[in-house]
Every structure is written in structure tokens, then in C-alpha cells.
Design a protein around this nucleic acid. Structure first.
Lengths: 186, 186
DNA sequence: GTCTATAAAACGATAGAC
DNA sequence: GTCTATCGTTTTATAGAC
């Protein structure tokens, strides 16, 4: 029995870094293989196709965000402002951990309208993200409709900030966006 | 057989539609050729490479935006609010004319950090866009630093709105972002 | 004949898949 | 490793306009 050099989870983790840096179409199986220390053919023992790999990766990101970040919005031991601050702090780490910006935003712009395979999970991520912010704004006393608009606005501004941060290499733009999101609680 | 089927300008115009729909890497010379009614080899009569074609295309977009849209910010016959409304209205037409969202935002997320060839023109577009908004906010009485932040915030929110509009197919998100930009004048 | 826009064919490289 | 398809690109040929 051959030894297992790498687990499926480790492949997914390494692949995120490559995809967020190079994009979906511009990343080859060869690129992923090199990042994982595998022969490119070996990938097909773990995943049916490049598309299936990307889809599983996005589902994993969805789970991570839901469990580790969005869940903070529903933690009853925290005040609204603390919730928002903690969420944004963790989101900042998620975005800045490696170069390349936001894998969710990048993949959305690159594939939505083309690959119906990715759309459900991408929509789910943004919907849960918006819902989490909405919940906090409601808890802070905003009417439901207002809370929704503020939440949508926050997420749009963050994704736009990530875009300009990636282009200009200036993280202050994202910090500003974080601060404005917190000010929306008032 | 006619000696010229298409002009360089027409090629650029048709290519924008393909690139914004399919993205840069996922668009093949074959795709562009079909959109233009040419053989793919014939493209090299007009452009040195796919990269050179994209760069010229982006420079053309920059010129279009500068002349047709950003210039409104400096039209002395208009009030600040009218300027902003006209700019956003024209930007909306530019974004919704065809499917695929914003060619500038799409290309930024797909190529910045990878292709240094595109970065100068992409940066220039965003800088001129932000400057135009900043100018209007200053004219409306905002201090320079405040005007800059409001301008950056507006552009980030618009690009984020385009992203979610592309994903959800719901243009109301962009309309809301337009309206909030106008409200920032108060 | 010369010039030019296009077609046609073929190149080496690399893609995703097995 | 090996397949086949397709990528971006290059080269060659051809069809009109002068």
C-alpha cells in the first residue's frame, strides 16, 4: 500500500493560495501540483476535475467562514459593536493571510455568469455574510429593511476595498472600510 | 472579396464584450475571432499579441471614461448634484450596456499582481474616477480629506455592487449604491 | 507588378484528463 | 507518463485595390 503524502484537506488549503493569486482559469493543474508536491495526474485520485476541486474548495471556504467568522454575529455573549469588531478583525486576517485578495470575490467576478457550478456556493457565502451583518445591525436597533441595506452596503464596500487594495497595494483603504462599517452602528 | 472587413476600432469594441463576459484568460483568440468574423491569425495584423490587444482596449476604455463621463465633474455649467447624477447615469449605461459587469473591475481582480502591463492603465482609470468624485464633493463644501474618503468609498461601493449584481442578477443593488452616493453630498 | 487585409495551415507549448 | 485538444503565435498563400 502506497504511503499517503498529502491529505485532501491539505491539497485544498494549498490550492486556495494558488487560485487567489493566479485566478481560476490562469491556474493550471501543474501549478497546483507543484504547490502540493504531487504529480499533476495524482490530483485525479482526489478530485474528478479542476472544476470539482474548485467547487469543493469553495464549499470549504463557505464552511470556514460560517463556523469561524459569521457565527460571531450570533454569539449571545457579545455586544453588537464587539461582534462587528471581531468579525471584521477575523475577516481581515482571512483576507491578508496571503496575497491575492478575496478568493470569493475573485472567483465571483471571474466565473459568475459562466460556470453555474460555482454560483450556488458563491451566492450562499455572500448571503450568509450579509445576513450576519444584518443581524448585528438589527440587534443595534435598526429596522429590518435598514439593517439589510446597511449590511449589503458594508459587504459591497469591503469587496470594493479589497479590489483597490489589490491594485494599489494600500491596505489603508480596507482599514477605512472596516472603520466605516463599525460607524454604521450609530 | 472586400479588402477590409473590419476596422481596428470595431475589433476593440467587439472584444470588450467578449472579455467582460468571459474574462481575460478564459477568452481565446478563437473567441475574439468569431466575434469579429475573422480568422484568429488575422488578428496579428492589428495587434502584436493578446496582451497588447487587451492593453489597447483598456487604454480605449480609459479615454472613453475620461472624455465622456469623468469630464462631467469639471463641467462648470452644472451644480454638484447634477454632475453626480449625470455621471452615475452614464456610468450605469456603461455598466449595463452589455452583460458581464465592469471590464475594469473584472480585469483588475483577474490580472493585478500578475500582469504589470495592465496595472498602469487600471490604476489610472480608478485614480481619475476617484478624482472626479472627489472634485464634486469638494465643490459641495467637503474638506479635501473628507472628499477623498467619500470618493474612494463611493467607487468601492459601486464596484462591490457590480460584483453582487453580476452574481445575483439584481440591478437594484447598484441603483441603491448610486442613490447612497448622491446622498453623500449632504 | 505592388500593397494590404484576410484566409489557411501549421508551429511548439501546454492545457486538462486518464 | 501519455493522451488529445486547444492555446497563442507564426508563416505562407491568396484575393482584390491601386
Amino acid at each position: 500500500m502506497p504511503i499517503q503524502k498529502i491529505t485532501k484537506e491539505e491539497i485544498l488549503k494549498k490550492s486556495i493560495d494558488v487560485f487567489r493569486l493566479k485566478g481560476y482559469h490562469n491556474t493550471s493543474m501543474q501549478d497546483l501540483a507543484e504547490a502540493c508536491g504531487l504529480m499533476k495526474g495524482s490530483f485525479y485520485h482526489y478530485f474528478q476535475s479542476k472544476e470539482a476541486l474548485m467547487k469543493e474548495l469553495l464549499v470549504g471556504v463557505n464552511t470556514y467562514l460560517k463556523v469561524k467568522i459569521f457565527s460571531i454575529a450570533y454569539d449571545s455573549s457579545l455586544q453588537p459593536k464587539d461582534k462587528l469588531e471581531q468579525m471584521l478583525k477575523k475577516m481581515g486576517r482571512f483576507l491578508f493571510e496571503k496575497d491575492g485578495g478575496c478568493i470569493v470575490g475573485n472567483t465571483t467576478l471571474e466565473t459568475s455568469g459562466l460556470f453555474y457550478e460555482f454560483e450556488p456556493v458563491l451566492k450562499n457565502i455572500f448571503t450568509e455574510w450579509i445576513d450576519a451583518h444584518k443581524h448585528i445591525f438589527e440587534e443595534a436597533g435598526k429596522p429590518s429593511e435598514t439593517a439589510l441595506k446597511l449590511a449589503q452596503q458594508s459587504i459591497m464596500e469591503l469587496e470594493g476595498a479589497v479590489m483597490l487594495t489589490k491594485l494599489y497595494g494600500n491596505r489603508d483603504l480596507l482599514i477605512d472600510a472596516f472603520n466605516r462599517t463599525i460607524q454604521k452602528l450609530d
